[in-house]
């Protein structure tokens, strides 16, 4: 078990180092930071000094080592465009994105599982057919279109919800939250729906398919033959077996919720990391791009790590097989 955890953590670190190498290589291949920062009027002397100050004259391995060491502490240098520390920029924008992504993920996994189970158990009911029909919209319409549609309906026509921004936020230390004010909460509704809808329908369809599969297995038949109540069979025996593959996909999707947040944030002018990244791309602000790349990688890796560990809790078969692989037990 411990060997399994160590192995997962080791793999995670390896992935991060590889992504760091990619992020680092952006500095060398995309644009010239000195030209970007110094502007056209700067003298040759200014340029050399700036390159020296940014450490661009050192050998490449040393620059990479320095990059790694700084990245480990969340430091990615100065933003070329804004002239501020990237870490400060990220810290400022992160709460908006995390709040949006976590709420979307909760919405998607919670309702996705619930509706998936419902449509599997009552697969011939009207309710299930309607839910399945609506879910087709979720899997086939692009996110921005849903966002724009929502804005048109609830902000332009009905004027119930704000069409952009986070509304009022409250500062809790360095973290800002929109959950504590009415306007903050109202501002969250549409972005969360937009971002979560695709994942919700995906998870729902996945849970449904898995659940139908599980309900056909021998152990479910045997549970019926033992006279267990149907609800117990469905929720205790079938659902837990359904969740193993669902956790995998849901975990991966959670990562992409943060990545997809770029689109949603653009549609709703949400002051999060996605918007920061889009600006950074426009201005070839490489430190910010590198930091964002690392941020997304860390999110994916951490989520995957959690998924790996959740498996073991859900399916005891993995515990013993990994123990054998790890030479333990």
């Amino acid at each position: 078990m411990i060997a399994y955890i160590l192995k997962s953590v080791g793999q995670a670190i390896l992935v991060l180092v590889v992504v760091a190498a990619l992020a680092f290589s952006m500095f060398r291949f995309i644009g010239d930071p000195v030209a970007n920062m110094a502007g056209q009027e700067a003298s040759q002397q200014d340029r050399r000094e700036l390159a020296e100050r940014l450490g661009l004259n050192d050998p490449v391995p040393i620059q990479f080592a320095r990059f790694l060491a700084n990245a480990a502490f969340g430091e990615f240098g100065m933003s070329y465009r804004q002239g501020r520390k990237v870490s400060a920029l990220i810290a400022e924008r992160m709460p908006a994105t995390v709040e949006l992504a976590v709420l979307s993920a909760l919405l998607a996994t919670g309702f996705g599982t619930l509706l998936g189970v419902y449509t599997a158990i009552r697969r011939n009911s009207w309710g299930a057919h309607i839910v399945m029909g609506i879910s087709l919209i979720g899997v086939s319409l692009p996110t921005f279109l849903i966002g724009i549609g929502l804005i048109y309906l609830f902000a332009v026509e009905l004027k119930w919800l704000p069409s952009f921004g986070r509304g009022e936020t409250v500062k809790l230390g360095w973290w800002t939250t929109g959950l504590l004010t009415p306007s903050g909460r109202a501002s969250l509704i549409m972005p969360v729906l937009t971002l979560g809808f695709f994942q919700l329908t995906l998870i729902m369809r996945l849970v449904r398919a898995q659940m139908l599969e599980t309900l056909r297995t021998d152990y479910v038949k045997f549970a019926r033959a033992r006279g267990l109540p149907e609800s117990r069979i469905q929720f205790r025996h079938a659902l837990r077996n359904t969740l193993v593959p669902v956790v995998t996909i849901a975990g991966l999707q959670l990562g992409s919720v943060i990545a997809f947040a770029i689109i949603t944030e653009s549609v709703f002018q949400w002051p999060g990391l996605g918007a920061l990244f889009v600006q950074a791309v426009q201005f070839v602000d490489i430190p910010v791009m590198a930091a964002y790349l690392m941020f997304v990688a860390v999110v994916f890796v951490v989520v995957n790590l959690i998924v790996d560990l959740t498996y073991v809790l859900l399916d005891p078969r993995l515990k013993s097989s990994t123990a054998v692989v790890g030479g333990g037990k």
Binding site: T217, D218, Y219, F222, L228
Partner: peptide
């Protein structure tokens, strides 16, 4: 009928490898 199933009539299936729920002791 559910109260008779399992209580008064038991059933053994063909494949013991798949008859038990893998996630419970």
């Amino acid at each position: 009928l559910r109260r008779i199933r399992g209580k008064r009539i038991g059933m053994v299936f063909q494949d013991p490898l798949t008859s038990l729920n893998p996630v419970y002791r």
